[in-house]
Design a protein around this nucleic acid. Structure first.
Lengths: 414, 414
DNA sequence: ACTCTTTATTTCGAGTGCCGAAAAAAATAG
DNA sequence: CTATTTTTTTCGGCACTCGAAATAAAGAGT
């Protein structure tokens, strides 16, 4: 049931509204804020004044309003960069990345580290993360981060605290959030990488992806992040949304996850490679696949109707069948295909669309828009950073209660 | 973005909290309300006093508190039955039902009408609904309903206004809500029948189904209603959640919806019957199936490993594959299987469970609880009634502004 | 029968927050 | 140097919640 409300909740909500407006457009006047939030000038004045005292906002005198009109000039206000620093961590195949951003979202420092993730135990992971984050913070000159969001390829628990399982590392049930929280003394959230891609797309293109956004990652494995009706789709007890592990064929090909017949077992890079080389469908390819390997495969598939094209066709039909099933549940949604697999999307697209239009239950429009993004990392980082910033915003909106020095500032004012 | 808040919002919220508490337990004292809502006695007093004036609540003197303790006795308050009357309408295969309930949720009148829905145009449907509702209202002695919720087997638009497509009637894009709203002058919502089953189960067993609830209707067709993380799952542009039309087999059996390979084309009664009789999988059975037909089929399937058992097995694997795919997206969720098809669930269950445990992506627990409900209609009606009542609650909570007679009541008080 | 105790509910005063209107501030136009 | 225009702040009023005190309505004890 819903909870009771009080006047404190009203203030928190309106503070949040003001911050949200300023996060969207870096700099606004109080008048702009009135228009954007529908709050009265008095209220905007009160809230911004509080925020200026708390160091959340800063006046930006240098911002001369372009066309100098009559009347008192507007004072530009923006988020104060130094109010908080956030950290994004991305764990992908054989790479760990860390980014540090200020409170306005500007990147201050980005570090990458490459190593074999497959050999990585949970313990290793924790240590490597801690080290790389420390180095990045030190490079950025930041003592204390305000929020850390870690995007992982794999499944997390529903609360975003543990990495339950990952195809790229050996560790299971790694308590990432608790450990990092202990190390860095700030809130930590662990999220699925594809969810972060969806967050980024929503943030970057709200008109197209604001309400509904399906991000499908095509690479060694298959991942998905979904916003439906403006909310992140997540499972009951985990991040779930494991599109790649929807059941495509009963008793089908062997998947990395240990099950049989998953979509990924046909559409992941390793599955396409396996099929194209005529290996049995329960063989896991022993080698790491390079981008070159896959480009070669795609080229052959385009050239002639041989085993390579058959492999891509099977991959496309697995994806198409999965999307058809997904769309039976969600209706068609604008899709962003992301990752190295998009390089062969021209081969797959007709088969994918055929599958979907074949299954337009109830005779409805099976059409969907799509976009391709070759590189996933920048999107994942942007999504993680945005998520971290929004977490800080929430804390900031809820007031300066817990901030040490609050009493002091009252004394200072007096 | 979130909207600004004001003190009116606080009042609305707290009014809503009070109503919600009283809807759960029919009768409470003001002290009970303090405990249940965490509001202060002053606030509860103010809000209940308003509600008594508005005719939303009524004191119930007859309710003697069981063990007569010391001290001033509590005064029991409850929802005032006559505050509003709601109508639920259920359209299922060859049957239209209407129920009228008072504001406490007590059923006042229920009417059924049987006719061939298949032959029914949109126009016919509107007229029949109107007539049956009028008759029920007249029987119940109700002049003006406050809310109507109509549950239909089929797909509605996302706003709950139109019946886009239904397997049981010929009409398409029937503007049910607008028409009935014009006829009866109150808010009307059109919802999917299985969603209403999920609503009912959540309402009846909040411990089991409060957060997550999957209702699967097994009958002539296959339907689904899903609550995930406490929210009704719905599509981007329609009610969607068309589990029965997830793609089970590429280029598979012909479905009622016109597509091929849908789960329903293997697991609906007609599909089982078709397969058991060795008909081609693109034949639609010409006859209406009786309950007896299906019971006979199930008996034969239990007796020997013939075509009947194969048909049920295929049905079970279609359902199991669908659930496995669904659970890849949502994690396993407690399921209620509902409808006549549950009579043969003993035959299907092992195959269904086998499919699901085969596809436990990431090695997680594929276990799910389930319950069987043979009759769907009572659940659909309960769900629709609850939905209608909650809609009235929302309107009541938002205050007496628009209620005619508000000014009069002020005069009366003065 | 009367008073004491206990529990429930209402009333009152203070605090917080929003808003509209008026005032103050800070520029340009003439 | 004044009038005008626009932005921002200040002030008074209103709605709401809350804690504390007051009131109401019983049973318990003598």
């Amino acid at each position: 049931m819903q909870l009771k409300a009080g006047s404190d909740l009203v203030r928190r909500q309106n503070r949040a509204v003001v911050i949200a407006a300023l996060r969207r457009s870096a700099t606004m006047s109080r008048t702009d804020l009135c228009a954007a939030t529908a709050l009265s000038p008095s209220t905007v004045s009160a809230i911004t004044s509080d925020f200026l005292n708390e160091g959340v906002l800063a006046e930006q005198r240098e911002f001369e309003p372009s066309g100098s009109r009559r009347g008192r000039p507007q004072i530009a206000i923006g988020l104060a960069p130094a109010r908080a620093y956030v950290v994004s961590v991305e764990l992908t195949h054989n790479q760990l990345s860390v980014g540090v951003s200020d409170y306005t979202g500007k990147a201050i420092c980005e570090l990458d580290q490459r190593f074999s993730t497959a050999a990585c135990s949970g313990e290793d992971l924790l240590v490597r993360c801690t080290q790389l984050i420390r180095m990045a913070l030190s490079n950025a000159g930041v003592e204390q981060p305000a929020s850390i969001v870690m995007a992982v390829q794999g499944r997390t628990d529903a609360e975003g605290r543990d990495l339950l399982w990952s195809p790229i590392a050996a560790g299971r049930n790694v308590h990432l959030a608790d450990y990092l929280q202990g190390e860095f003394g700030c809130p930590v959230t662990v999220a699925n990488d594809c969810s972060m891609i969806a967050v980024a797309l929503r943030w970057l293109e709200p008109d197209r992806y604001g309400k509904d956004c399906l991000a499908v990652l095509l690479s060694h494995g298959i991942g998905m992040g979904l916003y439906l009706n403006g909310r992140l789709f997540a499972g009951r007890s985990s991040s779930a949304a494991e599109f790649g592990h929807m059941l495509y064929k009963h008793n089908g090909a062997l998947c990395r996850c240990g099950s049989r017949g998953c979509i990924e077992a046909y559409a992941g890079d390793y599955a396409i490679w396996r099929a194209a080389h005529g290996l049995p469908d329960d063989a896991l390819p022993p080698v790491e696949l390079s981008g070159l390997d896959m480009r070669t495969l795609a080229r052959k598939a385009r050239q002639s109707d041989g085993p390579e094209r058959r492999a891509y066709r099977e991959a496309a039909e697995a994806i198409g069948t999965g999307l058809a099933s997904l769309f039976a549940l969600t209706d068609p949604v604008p899709i962003a295909f992301v990752g190295s697999g998009t390089a062969a999307f021209d081969i797959c697209e007709p088969y994918i669309r055929a599958c979907i239009s074949e299954s337009n239950s109830g005779g409805f429009d099976a059409h969907f828009e799509h976009e391709l993004f070759e590189f996933e990392l920048p999107l994942i980082r942007q999504g993680a950073t945005v998520t971290a910033l929004l977490a800080v915003d929430e804390q900031v909106a809820s007031g300066p209660e817990n901030v040490s020095g609050r009493d002091v500032s009252i004394l200072e004012v007096a």
